[in-house]
Design a protein around this nucleic acid. Structure first.
Ligand SMILES: Nc1ccn([C@H]2C[C@H](O)[C@@H](COP(=O)(O)OP(=O)(O)OP(=O)(O)O)O2)c(=O)n1
Ligand SMILES: [Mg+2]
Ligand SMILES: [Mg+2]
Length: 595
DNA sequence: ATCCTCCCCTAC
DNA sequence: TAAGGTAGGGGAGGAT
């Protein structure tokens, strides 16, 4: 539907901008894509990887912190008052930067990814999200959902500059800032007068100084501030004024909204009938503990109750330093693998020294292709790691070190001892922990290590897991073909209709879902994708709109959906032809569901 | 109990 | 050309 709303000439102009932006990025070209073909592989990979960029950002954040006076202790609270925490997070950060200063892209669906092929989407703007495009999605799927999608390249230097402007704006409000990531931080506003006015001003400052938008959530703790931000987005401010208000808000939200609950923990909870925060709160503590363990269950039960006991640690000390790569890693011989391990070891040694650390504990992490999954990847020519076993081995060094050569030698030894056929290796990582300061005079440490050739033996790797294509786990994104089967929700819930309508209206900028979205049907029907698909002669309608609805339903964890359209859709600026087809299909869907 | 190793999971 | 890094929390199971 929205497809028709982008004019061909605007799209053409935008695509020219995208092509031009991509042309100016020489490091993204060249035929040498693997560890074997390219001597410079490691640094080229790190320079082109957005995960390396966001993963190493905190290191560079130190430089901003050094220009700031250390924060005074947090003010004590007057009795009976609670803290006021703000969570500041840039809206679709990479995509916003891509659009900023490029008027040709404004209002169009834009994603940022390494290529315009099937690369993973790092960030999609909200125009693209209205089609169901999401961060982390494969490019091909994104373009199915949204054929007009404009794909822009990474611009790491601009992210760095804009993030610094954003952070300086926050530091101008308070010294109590906790950096989370390149686009996101917490600020303690407890000592300030009106948090909401302060936050509104801060949003405006960030917008004018960066050309990008930040949303802000405010709450009595970090958990609720973060939950509020989600509600505020895009381009909004939302405040939760008490733990009680937060608890009420969380009651019907998915446990997935809680920090620390990702795909797997949500699955474990669902397996014991817990889907919402309210259900988690009400569930038997012993059951949750059995499923998740003592610490995780305690933390999450607290979160579900809107309480967050994490200490405010604005500048936590590093506990480990490491480097890894699991893309383009292919070896023919042990020498090649060992050379790669040495490079990683040297890289880690340099990073340790650069930060004034030494470390005593050394870990080698290896990706090994599963038996039957040795072919290069999900598709011919892909240099991804594919389905792998993960093997890690660690040793404790006789003394803390940051000596590149010593680390490289120890990595080589471990690599030999773990005895993995080099051709099966798909990734390698080296990490050093148990850190101490290199400056502190203690044990002369790093000293060239010729001292002890400790026989730090390490066990050989276990046999490879056997890979079978039919049993690719639902969470694995690397294999094309079938979407993971819908896990039917255990129970229909009330309140979904209201939530869904509110969310759709907000996220699509006005498109309303049907007047009949039912979640109270038993799970007898096929998932809605099927009912709207070609099998029912509905290909006219299996478009972005349908995909979007289906995605909303999935996001809400609904077991089944029924769609219908409002007559008023015809008068709300949507393409009448599409709406007519849509209405017809909805009738059929409904009939099918009723019998 | 607490520690250790080898994972697993999560957030960006 | 699908550029899948980095760091932290913590669980399982065994040793101390
Ligand atoms: N799977 C992901 C998630 C994020 N990022 C990068 C790109 C994002 O722009 C940036 C910030 O991550 P956020 O989670 O804050 O996502 P966005 O800022 O893109 O969107 P939102 O408006 O939801 O914050 O990190 C990434 O490369 N890959
Ligand atoms: Mg963001
Ligand atoms: Mg963020």
């Amino acid at each position: 539907m929205a497809e028709a709303t982008f004019s061909a000439s605007r799209l053409a102009a935008a695509r020219r901008v995208a092509t031009e932006a991509r042309r100016g990025m020489p490091q993204l070209q060249g035929p040498h894509r693997t560890s074997r073909e390219n001597d410079n592989f490691m640094s080229e990979f790190m320079g082109a990887s957005r995960l390396h960029y966001i993963g190493s950002w905190k290191d560079r954040y130190q430089r901003i912190l050094e220009t700031m006076p250390p924060p005074p202790p947090l003010v004590q609270l007057a009795p009976g008052r609670t803290r006021v925490i703000a969570h500041i997070d840039m809206d679709c950060f990479f995509a916003s930067v891509a659009v900023a200063g490029r008027p040709e892209l404004e209002g169009l669906p834009v994603a940022v990814a390494w290529s315009d092929g099937n690369a993973e989407i790092a960030s999609a703007n909200y125009a693209a999200r209205a089609f169901g495009v999401r961060n982390g999605m494969w490019g091909s799927q994104a373009k199915e959902l949204c054929p007009s999608l404009i794909t822009m390249p990474y611009e790491f230097e601009r992210y760095e500059e804009i993030a610094e402007v954003m952070y300086r704006a926050v530091f101008a409000v308070t010294p109590h800032v906790m950096g989370v990531s390149v686009d996101e931080c917490y600020a303690d506003l407890s000592a300030l007068g009106s948090p909401e006015a302060t936050a509104a001003t801060l949003r405006e400052t960030i917008r004018t100084q960066t050309g990008c938008v930040a949303s802000i959530g405010i709450g009595p703790n970090r958990l609720l501030a973060r939950v509020a931000t989600k509600r505020a987005k895009p381009d909004g401010l939302h405040a939760l004024h008490s733990v009680a208000e937060g608890r009420t808000l969380l009651t019907d939200e998915s446990v997935r909204e809680l920090p620390g609950v990702g795909y797997h923990i949500a699955q474990k909870l669902e397996a014991i009938g817990v889907r919402t925060c309210g259900e988690l709160r009400a569930a038997d503590a012993g059951r949750i503990r059995d499923a998740l363990g003592p610490k995780v269950s305690a933390t999450l039960r607290g979160y579900a109750d809107a309480t967050d006991n994490r200490q405010w640690e604005a500048r936590p000390t590093r506990k480990s330093i490491g480097a890894q790569s699991s893309w383009g890693v292919r070896f023919a011989t042990a020498e090649e693998a060992e050379s790669f391990g040495r490079q990683l070891g040297e890289e880690v040694g340099s990073r340790l020294a650069a930060h004034g650390y030494r470390g005593k504990h050394l870990t080698l992490k290896l990706w090994r292709a599963m038996e039957g999954a040795e072919s290069t990847g999900p598709r011919k020519g892909s240099m991804g790691h594919g389905m792998c076993d993960h093997i890690s081995r660690s040793i404790t060094l006789p003394s803390a070190t940051n000596d590149k050569a010593l680390i490289a030698r120890e990595v080589t030894k471990m690599l030999r001892e773990v005895s993995i056929e080099p051709s099966k290796l798909r990734g390698m990582g080296v990490s050093v922990g148990t850190l101490s300061s290199a400056a502190a005079g203690s044990g002369a440490g790093g000293g060239s290590g010729s001292s002890r050739a400790l026989p730090a033996r390490v066990a050989a790797a276990p046999p490879a897991t056997k890979f079978s294509p039919e049993k690719v786990p639902a969470w694995y994104k690397g294999v094309s073909g079938k979407a993971p089967a819908e896990a039917p929700a255990s129970k229909p819930r009330s309140g979904d209709l209201g939530q869904m309508m509110a969310r759709m209206t907000k996220e699509t900028g006005g498109i309303r879902p049907s007047k009949r979205v039912r979640t109270d049907e038993p799970q007898t029907a096929e998932p809605p994708t099927r009912r709207l698909g070609k099998a029912n002669g509905c290909e006219e309608v299996a478009d972005e709109g349908a995909q979007m609805l289906i995605q909303f339903g999935r996001d809400l964890g609904l077991s089944s959906l029924m769609f219908a359209a409002h007559d008023s859709d015809l008068t709300s600026g949507l393409d009448p032809e599409r709406v007519t087809a849509w209405l017809g299909a909805c009738d059929r869907v409904e009939q099918q569901c009723q019998k």
